[in-house]
Design a protein around this nucleic acid. Sequence first.
RNA 1: GGAGAGAUGGCUGAGUGGUCGAAAGCGGUUGACUCGAAAUCAAUUGUUCCACAGUGUGGGACCCGGGGUUCGAAUCCCCGUCUCUCCGCCA
Length: 423
Amino acid sequence: MLDIHYIRHNIDKIKKGASIKGFAVDLDLIIVLDDKKRELLYTIENIRAQRNQNAKALPKLTNTERADAIQKGKELKEALTKEEASLATIDAELKELLLYVPNPPLDGIPAGKDDRDNVEIKKWGHIPQFEFQPKSHDELGELLDIIDVNQSAKFAGSRTYILKNEGALLEHAVTRFAVDHILKKGFELFSIPVIVRDEAMIGTGFFPLGKEDTYTMEKDALYLIGTSEVSLVSYYSNEILDVKNLPKKSVTLSTCFRREAGTYGKDTKGLYRVHQFQKVEQVIICKNDINVSETMHTLLLQNSEEILQALGIPYRVALACGAETGLGQVKKNEIESWMPSRNAYAETHSCSSLHEFQARRSNIRYRDEEGKIHFVHTLNNTAIASPRILIPLLELNQNKDGSVNIPKVLQPYMNGISMIKKK
RNA sequence: GGAGAGAUGGCUGAGUGGUCGAAAGCGGUUGACUCGAAAUCAAUUGUUCCACAGUGUGGGACCCGGGGUUCGAAUCCCCGUCUCUCCGCCA
């Protein structure tokens, strides 16, 4: 959500930002509604002032004066009821519209059409040349009896999977390794709800726009989170933090749920695009200062890169183009890991800066050194997400016979297993 | 799932129709005392919107959230959310 004052004074900037991101938004209507709202509010506050004055004076009046005052109060009440009804209608419409106004991206974000227009800004690692025909992760998974997608489809439907044996262990290992790495950086570890109310979804900017892609428990009006950022950010909703305690750095491992509505036929094979996955997520809440925000963004990116480097996974970092930058994001970097079966880099991490966007919606503020109150900035980045990360992990470390070497850093988390072999 | 109790400022907690944005205590801030600290004393201490003006004055809103009754609601009524107690169920 953007500040209405900011919108009023920066219409062109916001229009341009919306166009770069490819969002349609009727700012002119918003201004018209806000004008009406201001006008009504002025009228209403005047009537209320009269009402308060009238009611306050009433107990001291004589009986005859009192009857007049009650009559006057009734008239004021009638006028107020009428105006307040108009205000409620306009205010609801305005609030709804404001939920769709995109945060303008930072300067220098290219417009673009889709992820092919993302700009590569860094590459790490060497793309391996196999001396044999490498297998895809799903082939390896079946061969080694560690991944099964047929049995899960039977009882859980499409885009589901089962990890078994060392496959399941590998997921535990890589997520735990990521948690431990982030903990070394001084983050606070959370275990959070994955079922939340719509306030949390709206507050973090996923609703109303992303509702279609969210699993809903209608009976209870609860929703399954698509990312733990929802819970980690909402944890601080309606709070006024002390600047002394900023930045707040949190990390959690949680299950994430995505309906993947509208992706039928896309990435249907293997573990790439699934309805449910495990993600270690980093969230930072910091001062309202674009330089601090930028520093935190770099730090989040760095943490995730370190994890991939430790795992020996070649990757590249890309700057998302406007079309790929979400409603609230001012900047997004994607880390794409090399996946031999795709013969391409593919997204495994997503690092976002949202500035005040979520803070305004979730009402997260802090008191600065002078006692002044500001909205915080929020940022988030994936530390590791499984099973997607298992794709490069298995494919890159395979041997000719289909066995898979376990990276050194994961072996302690695998009870010492250094290689997954066919039984 | 059944029965009951409750939700008030940073915290504890008073307030059951007007003089209440809200007592009191604790905490915080500032000042005095002190070499300094503690103790003591004094003052001050919520968030937010609007108008004018410029850092002040006037007005509006906020006592869990949303409706309602009333000239007037923290207070009465209804709905919701959450917390606690007892029973049931349960990893």
